[in-house]
């Protein structure tokens, strides 16, 4: 035996095509969900309930409402806010609690990583899955909006990809935050951020209610960017704000994805 017998390394490719691995993680999640479709249905109802109670119920008390210089009914103002907020809430739930459970308790990712799958596949697969789920809720909600006569522009069709983008941005960032969590108690911090974002991101009332620094702060929070984007699209009043939101949310998602992959490497490939 001598050093010369070391076999020459030959680089051989993975048996999986690029993105096939992410698709397989989506397949795995789909199979586990088939038996839990009732759980799936409840996610759709939440924004619809908000729309009926606040948009339509409270809306009855408000006669004319001004948005970007246009007079619109209050329900038309609230509905896109609910669309963005439901994409946000869905992404948050999926990428925090569910991912934490798989990571720490089920040790699912440890199982996956002894196969040809990689941490990139895991990160992308989980986020794509979250968007499939969240996206189907958004689509259903848009249909409800249309049926209630709350949509007046063809731009509204783009509110669907916009909702997916919101979901993607939040999934990626929340999943990366989840990788830093050590116990269930850490999720209190998530709730502490989730609720104010939900209530004050221009979802139920216009941002003009705020002044000075506070308004500036809200303008750069991610959910506000999402709400503005959805609202401009469903009402058909498009401004440069939508363009800014688009760039903001894409950057947020990509950054989150990079952090997720690095963190999974650090946590699982030890």
């Amino acid at each position: 035996m001598s050093a010369t017998t070391t076999p020459r390394p030959v680089s051989i490719r993975s048996p999986l095509r690029p993105f096939e691995g992410s698709g397989l993680i989506v397949l795995r999640n789909y199979v586990t969900y088939k038996s839990q479709w009732k759980l799936f249905a409840t996610g759709f109802l939440e924004p619809v309930f908000y729309l009926f109670s606040i948009g339509i119920g409270v809306g009855k008390l408000i006669h004319v409402f001004e948005f970007n210089g246009h007079a619109i009914p209050y329900a038309e103002f609230v509905a896109p806010g609910m669309l963005a907020a439901s994409a946000f809430n869905g992404a948050l739930l999926d990428s925090t609690f569910n991912v934490f459970f798989k990571l720490k308790y089920e040790k699912l990712y440890d199982q996956l990583l002894v196969t040809p799958l990689t941490t990139s596949d895991v990160a992308r697969g989980e986020i794509i899955w979250g968007q499939l789920r969240g996206g189907s809720y958004s689509l259903a909600f848009l249909v409800v909006m249309w049926a209630l006569g709350l949509v007046h522009s063809w731009w509204a069709v783009l509110a669907f990809p916009a909702a997916l983008l919101i979901g993607f941005a939040f999934s990626a960032v929340c999943m990366s935050l989840t990788t830093f969590m050590t116990s269930w108690q850490d999720f209190d911090k998530i709730t502490m951020v989730q609720l104010p974002l939900f209530l004050f991101s221009g979802t139920f009332f216009p941002i003009t209610a705020f002044h000075g620094v506070l308004r500036w702060v809200i303008e750069v929070t991610p959910l506000y960017r999402g709400v503005v984007l959805c609202r401009e699209l469903t009402t058909g009043v498009i401004t440069w704000e939508s363009g800014f939101s688009l760039v903001y949310l894409v950057a947020m998602g990509v950054l989150g994805l990079v952090v997720v992959r690095r963190r999974l490497d650090a946590l699982l490939l030890t």
Partner: peptide, 17 residues
């Protein structure tokens, strides 16, 4: 470390397959 003639740092997925 060489596994099946491959380098785990480079060919992880192919080795794990």
């Amino acid at each position: 470390l060489s596994i099946l003639g491959m380098d785990p740092a480079k060919d992880g997925p192919a080795i794990r397959a």
